[in-house]
Design a protein around this nucleic acid. Structure first.
Length: 478
DNA sequence: CTATGGCACGGATT
DNA sequence: AATCCGTGCCATAG
């Protein structure tokens, strides 16, 4: 029988309400936490936000400590030992929620975003007739921050006294400029444009287009079974399509790209997402310890207002009970936030240490790790890890933003190996041959599994690949 | 006959 | 308890 150990630094487990709230805070992303705290601050008079401290040496905002963990790190710190700490930032303002597991927060940098219209206009200027420029300009300046056009086309047509078809024509030209899909009237249109362009350079799931066209609503709500029935295909097919879309397409053209498809870097793309956790290398040195900043969405320090506590003594009898509950609520929130932070710090400490190679060198070096094993090591419940990991994103030293859950991907390293093999194959290898290749490299998987991995990565079966190859060879001649 | 995809089962994971 | 994942078996397309 195991005795639940109370961590030395930790706050004693108290009421069930306390535990429940810590749990619910744990699964919030930085942005959701910000919303929560802001809501609480504006309704609860016992809470206050006081000015935070700054590190005397590097001016980094601090929470609770006197010196920042980077400046005060021990000289003897080994390279493997990461520096993990809470990093207050308050600039987070809005967020995107496309796929549930790809939730990200967005730091608004208006200067760079304003460049989008001119950036696009420059690209398409040559394709436009003189008279259409005004329309294009109208569309481009009406874009919202996602790069979508929320103004009805008809409105623009009326304004310029031109037929609707002409506005549509201009919109089409804009949509095919970089970033692909910009100026679409809704995310769905944007996806279709991207799909169309993508189809010219690589293989795409055959039903993807129909799925988006006919099953948009269902797709959004993850009702894959229903969609599968409507299209008359297997549910797994639909799921493949859904992951393909989530991975390769971007319903909000103006937002930075996910995944591997990187269009030429445009100036406005430098606008970046603020993830929940930032990982960087100390001084950019390959061999230095990793610096892990856990974003906390407030720059100051949140605490219970001491004046409120004092005022409670002179509270009128009829208000006393109400004020007390308000105070309790505030104390609870502060405590829970501390616990949340503490839990995430502990989690990242271990996680980053384990996956250092993955963080620095990429997908192929991800070592398979389960939430359960980590939970055991940290002596917390598995669900605690699950909650902490879900709905959070990490920015790697490379600048890529990935879901934290990717750290627990069981087959990623094999899939990247598979991609490498196929990329270097001299002739299309069958699944069975791929199994052999993988086994030679130390990965033992069944033939059927290779097929699944291929599908996951959007790689077509061998016989189709050979056809594609022939086409490519004959194309220039034709 | 061979290479793949579909379905379903069981064990692991969440 | 629900979901995900790797696999085996079988049907089917080429």
């Amino acid at each position: 029988m195991l005795i639940r150990q109370v961590q030395s630094v930790d706050i004693r487990p108290t009421t069930t309400a306390h535990l429940a709230q810590t749990m619910s805070l744990l699964e919030l992303s930085a942005l959701e936490l910000q919303e929560k705290i802001e809501a609480e601050l504006s309704t609860n008079p016992a809470l206050e936000l006081i000015e935070g401290r700054f590190c005397p040496t590097c001016q980094r905002p601090l929470i609770d400590t006197l010196h920042c963990p980077i400046c005060s790190r021990p000289k003897t710190l080994s390279n493997e030992e990461p520096i993990v700490f809470i990093s207050p930032r308050e600039q987070i303002t809005s967020y995107a929620s496309w796929e549930d597991d790809q939730r990200i927060s967005f730091e608004e940098t208006s200067v760079e975003c304003e460049e989008l219209p001119t950036y696009v206009l420059r690209q398409i200027a040559s394709e436009l007739e003189e008279a259409d420029r005004e329309i294009a300009a109208h569309i481009l300046t009406s874009l919202d921050k996602d790069g979508l056009l929320r103004t009805p086309l008809i409105e623009i047509a009326l304004y310029h006294h031109v037929p609707l078809s002409r506005v549509e024509k201009v919109q089409k030209i804009i949509q095919y400029a970089d970033p692909l899909g910009v100026g679409s009237s809704d995310p769905r249109q944007a996806l279709l444009v991207q799909l169309d362009v993508l189809a010219q350079t690589r293989a795409i799931p055959p039903l993807a287009k129909r799925a988006i066209e006919e099953g948009w609503e269902l797709l959004l709500h993850h009702q894959y079974a229903e969609l599968a029935r409507n299209l008359g295909v297997a549910v797994t097919k639909i799921k493949e399509i859904a992951t393909f879309i989530g991975k390769n397409l971007n319903p909000y053209p103006a937002r930075a790209n996910w995944g591997e498809i990187h269009q030429p870097t445009a100036p406005y793309r430098e606008a970046y997402y603020t993830p929940d956790i930032l990982i960087s290398l100390l001084n950019g040195d390959e061999n230095a310890p990793l610096v892990v900043e856990i974003v906390f969405p407030m720059s100051g320090k949140l605490r219970v207002n001491p004046l409120f506590r004092e005022g409670l003594r002179e509270a009128p009898a009829e208000k006393l009970e109400q004020w007390q509950t308000v105070l309790e609520r505030a104390t609870l929130l502060v405590k829970c936030i501390q616990q949340r932070n503490h839990a995430i710090v502990r989690l990242m400490q271990v996680l980053v240490k384990r996956q250092r190679d993955f963080i620095l060198k990429g997908d192929a070096y991800l070592s398979p790790l389960t939430r359960a094993s980590l939970a055991q090591e940290l002596e917390v419940h598995e669900s605690t890890i699950s909650r902490a990991v879900s709905a959070k994103t990490v920015q790697l030293p490379s600048g890529k933003i990935i879901p934290l859950a990717k750290f627990f991907d069981r087959s990623l390293h094999i899939r990247t190996e598979l991609q490498a093999i196929i990329a270097n194959e001299s002739q299309p290898l069958t699944d069975m041959e791929l199994v052999e290749m993988l086994r030679a490299r130390g990965y033992q998987v069944a033939r059927r599994t290779v097929a699944k991995y291929r599908a996951m990565e959007g790689i077509l079966p061998a016989h189709v690949r050979s056809k594609m190859r022939n086409q490519k060879l004959t194309l220039p001649i034709v």
